[in-house]
Amino acid sequence: MSILIYADSSNGKLTKNAFEAANYGAQLAQQTGSSATALVTGTVSGIEELGKYGISKVLHASDATLDSFDPQKITHVIAEAAKSIGADTIIFSHDYSGKSVAPRLAAKLDAGLVSGAIALPNTDGGFVVKKAVFSGKAFAFVEVNSATKIVSVLPNSIEKKIGEGSAAIEAFAVEIPTTNLKVKEVRKESTELSLTEADIVVSAGRGLKGPENWGMIEELAHELGAATACSRPVADIGWRPHHEHVGQTGFAIRPNLYIAIGISGAIQHLAGVNGSKVIVVINTDAEAPFFKAADYGIVGDAFEVVPKLIEAVKKLKAQQ
């Protein structure tokens, strides 16, 4: 068995998800007694960092035409890299890049793909991967029967094992096909923390009564170093931007801490946040369904509780 990990980059640096995927591949290599090689595409610095995540060898296809993300080109490069090292298992992150490339590669290699894996494959006489299904309401154990196997790892779901070491980088030359797609522009949403990568998320719903009341939510998020999110109706009526909408039909997130303020906890909302490690609910209604999914709760008025919470967090931070 030989494992290839696609390590994605953004603005010339490897992403957090890339390191996580690399570490997943390295742990799988250790489990099966095989080797883990990473592939990096485009102009990227700091590649040797992958060594700390258990990768000893990196193939670097540094052709600048790969700086903009064209899934068709990247798929081709990964397939060539897989061929050159005889990889039979290919690992991605189940992030935006992984979602656009892993399925293409699966079709190209006639390989089974498990997307959104939340644990290492069980390789005891087969290849079975656990993933969340029904929007987090259940788990499935998916068996891959093809010769080549592809797994994409759900961000923030694997215990990382970080060590020492620096990865050896090998240039990987490959011919790049032309396609009908051109990247025209990349717009980053300011410097705000990306919702899907944030460790802490502060989220609010219709209980806040109106968009003018979000100041305290943003302040609490700021104090905690958290990203902000909201329920669907709040995004639909335009109180908050669509990219904050979490739930079954919005973003699915799995932060360490999710604080839900004035959100009832409808099943569709829970579906997008039930992977959070710790859930805190603040709601005036003791019967709100969200309390059943919460670890900690306060039955109380957000307009009284949240300002106090901000003060208490400030106090804790002052003590540290």
Binding site: K184, E185, V186, E197
Partner: peptide, 13 residues
């Protein structure tokens, strides 16, 4: 299309 923390604009012929 959505990308991590932003949006990418592409043109396809």
């Amino acid at each position: 299309r959505d990308i991590e923390g932003g949006v990418e604009v592409v043109e396809v012929t």
